[in-house]
Simulated scan of single mutants.
Amino acid sequence: MPVSPPVCDFGAPWHEFTLPGTDGRTYNLEDIRGPNGTLVMFICNHCPYVQSVIDRIVRDAARLQDAGIGVVAISANDVTEYPQDGPDQMKIVAERHGFTFPYLYDASQAVARAYGAECTPDFFGYNAAGELQYRGRLDSSTRTAGPADARRELLEAMLQIAETGKGPEKQIPSMGCSIKWKTG
């Protein structure tokens, strides 16, 4: 059953983190943040919602990076139950799809909990001051990719944030698989 996160809590602060990336480096928020905003995405390898749009995510992330927006993807799923979401497989996915942004592993799930991530994909768009301005979807895609000419809602919102510091008032929540939380 798909999960949909709550609407944007405008102005909520971002959360510091230090996490390992698939490239062997360790990243924190200061390494990621862009001068015009920052996009923090929670994704994973096995989710059909992510798989259906991963190439669109990569395409739009490159455009956002060109606009001075920092981009990072984080996987927080329980790899005991979902080994396909582990760091070795994350590295393969990042290389296969040509990620231009760090792909980080949140083994403790503390970062995902701090952000309030609920599904994959879950997008958190911040302005340059670190204030949440977007918690919506990439586009109209679901378990299958939407039309090729689907409105690029995440891209438009982040470019607006880069320009004005404010996200759109109307946002449609993302939809995806639930974060696979550890039990116990």
Rank of each mutant, 00 (worst) to 15 (best):
Thr144Phe: 02
Ile43Cys: 04
Thr164Lys: 09
Phe10His: 10
Asp85Met: 01
Gly34Gln: 04
Lys91Ser: 12
Asp78Ala: 01
Val79Glu: 04
Pro20Asp: 13
Met41Ala: 13
Leu159Met: 07
Lys180Thr: 07
Ser178Asp: 09
Phe42Asn: 07
Thr80Trp: 06
Ser108Lys: 10
Gln171Cys: 06
Ala107Gln: 13
Ala145Glu: 15
His15Glu: 12
Glu118Cys: 07
Gln133Gly: 04
Asp88Phe: 04
Val71Ala: 07
Tyr115Gln: 11
Val111His: 12
Pro168Ala: 12
Leu155Pro: 03
Glu131Arg: 11
Tyr126Ala: 03
Pro173Tyr: 12
Met90Gly: 08
Ile69Trp: 01
Phe123Trp: 02
Ile92Met: 06
Val50Leu: 03
Gln109Ala: 04
Tyr115Glu: 06
Lys170Cys: 00
Gly24Asp: 03
Phe17Lys: 04
Phe17Ala: 01
Pro121Lys: 00
Met90Asp: 03
Ala94Cys: 06
Ser141Thr: 03
Ala62Phe: 03
Pro48Asn: 01
Glu131Tyr: 00
Ala110Trp: 08
Val93Gln: 14
Ile54His: 15
Gly70Ser: 03
Ala12Cys: 10
Val93Ala: 14
Asp55Ile: 15
Ala157Ser: 10
Gln84Ile: 05
Asn28Trp: 07
Asp23Gln: 08
Leu132Gly: 11
Gly116Lys: 01
Ile57Leu: 08
Gly165Tyr: 10
Ile74Glu: 06
Phe17Val: 07
Ala145Ser: 15
Gly176Gln: 08
Val40Asn: 13
Tyr49Glu: 08
Asp149Gly: 09
Val50Cys: 02
Lys182Phe: 03
Ala148Arg: 14
Gly86Asn: 00
Lys180Val: 02
Met175Trp: 00
Asp139Leu: 02
Thr26Ala: 14
Gly165Gln: 04
Arg63Cys: 00
Asp31Val: 12
Leu39Asp: 05
